[in-house]
Amino acid sequence: MTAMKISAIELYEYDLTYSHGTYVMSKGRSAKQQPSNLVRVITDSGIEGWGEAATLSGNYLPVFAGSTRAALRELAPLLIGQDPRRSTHLQRLMASVLMGQANAKNAFDVACWDIFGKSVDLPIAALIGGVLSTDLPIFEAVPLSSTEESLDYVSKRSAQGIMRYQIKIGDDPVNDAARARAIVKAFPDIFFFVDANAGYTLLEAQIAMRALEDMNLYVEQPCRDLADCAMLRKISGLPIVLDEAILTHADLYRAKYEVNAAAVNIKLGRLGGITPAVAMRNTAQDLGMHFCIEDVWGGDVTAAAVSHVAASAFPENLMHTSFFNDWTNEHVAGYQPRTRNGRGAAPTGPGLGITVDRSLLGAPVASFS
């Protein structure tokens, strides 16, 4: 390949407002908007790439908006002069300076994959296994709210073609079970699962899973600790999917062989980008596990990155994915990719396959060269 180096990096900040009012998770975690960051990585050949790092809240994962923005500024100078196509090298380089801070690393990793794809005139999906699916099942989350509000949400979104929903639980286990039961009963032809976002104590999770025992549901991340999730297998046969607790391949093995988890949620921002997400996806496939591919939060750039990882996954192992730009009002790349009738596909253009409109962003908040 012709030599290429990163010559400049620009950082942009903007807010993503939730398009359905207030996004509510377990234990009172809620927000109407979330801070997001865009990175523009420019090469000496004139090719540029875009990546995004959005945060859900400071009490969802051990990261918050301020730490992500500080980490972006810490990492950017390190990448100047590097070849953006050496993804594994760049991951090692970033790890040598900052432990963790996967959300910030995610933005740079995605931007570099965008450059790689553009440099060879191929979509990212073609570089990480090839496109195996052009018809991705899309899910949306039903925020924690009253039963009536939840029923109204599903009714409105199902009219737009969404047929898969993650019901947020994790507060009061008895009320959570009653609400989930009412939602499932009202929409017998829709696929539902429940997600506590690690909000339950072990006792609360035991009560909830016993109350849900007779329902055809799986439960995502009932408790934060893997050992607690493993103990729940003694009291319930409901399938468990793990999310927040899975950061490494060792965690993935523990999920299968200690928790007997049916599946795992792979999020680019939790792991550090496309590079580690694809590695974990491939390991999960080898282990015969199912998975969801998504991210912590984001807009058009995040949706595009997620779509490429999902489109190149084994279709038989992919449960579903999410396009976060369906959840948010702001669109920096023309609302692409976009869900249609509850299904999605990765863009077919080179790199991410989308075009960011810089006129919508204003001036960069920081620049490095």
Results as ranks from 00 to 15, higher is better:
329 N>P: 05
204 E>N: 13
30 S>V: 14
263 A>E: 06
32 K>W: 08
67 S>R: 12
98 L>Y: 00
231 M>Q: 13
6 I>Y: 00
171 D>G: 13
57 S>G: 05
346 A>Y: 12
135 D>R: 09
85 R>P: 01
198 A>H: 10
7 S>V: 03
200 Y>G: 01
157 R>W: 11
9 I>G: 07
210 R>W: 10
341 N>R: 15
321 T>P: 01
332 V>W: 05
199 G>E: 08
204 E>V: 07
180 A>L: 04
42 I>Q: 08
75 L>F: 00
127 L>T: 07
210 R>S: 12
78 L>I: 07
189 D>M: 02
59 N>E: 10
184 V>H: 09
29 R>T: 14
273 G>M: 02
106 N>I: 02
361 L>D: 12
361 L>E: 12
238 L>N: 09
254 R>I: 03
109 D>Q: 04
144 L>M: 15
47 I>S: 06
20 H>D: 13
198 A>G: 02
104 A>D: 00
335 Y>H: 15
29 R>M: 05
274 I>V: 15
59 N>V: 10
31 A>L: 15
178 A>Q: 15
56 L>D: 03
78 L>A: 00
335 Y>P: 02
245 A>N: 13
47 I>R: 04
255 A>T: 04
247 L>W: 10
364 P>Y: 07
41 V>P: 06
333 A>Q: 07
296 V>E: 05
348 T>I: 15
259 V>E: 09
323 F>S: 03
225 D>L: 10
118 K>C: 03
360 L>Y: 02
90 L>N: 02
326 D>A: 13
24 V>S: 14
101 Q>P: 00
40 R>K: 15
258 E>N: 09
214 D>T: 08
176 D>P: 03
288 G>P: 05
104 A>P: 01
271 L>F: 14
122 L>N: 01
194 V>L: 04
130 G>F: 08
327 W>G: 04
25 M>D: 09
313 A>L: 12
29 R>I: 15
22 T>E: 15
95 A>Q: 01
276 P>W: 02
161 G>C: 12
63 V>E: 15
365 V>I: 14
217 L>M: 08
365 V>N: 03
307 S>T: 08
226 L>V: 06
175 N>E: 14
287 L>N: 13
140 E>T: 14
319 M>D: 11
274 I>E: 11
261 A>F: 04
325 N>M: 10
222 P>I: 08
105 K>Q: 00
94 M>A: 01
47 I>Q: 07
353 G>F: 08
236 S>F: 06
193 F>C: 03
320 H>E: 13
227 A>E: 11
169 I>W: 08
145 S>Q: 15
321 T>I: 14
276 P>D: 02
53 A>H: 04
53 A>W: 04
111 A>S: 11
146 S>Y: 11
50 W>M: 13
63 V>S: 08
329 N>G: 11
58 G>A: 11
67 S>I: 07
326 D>Q: 14
360 L>D: 02
262 A>P: 03
340 R>Y: 10
230 A>F: 11
158 S>D: 13
237 G>I: 14
14 Y>P: 01
294 E>R: 10
369 S>P: 01
322 S>P: 01
186 A>N: 09
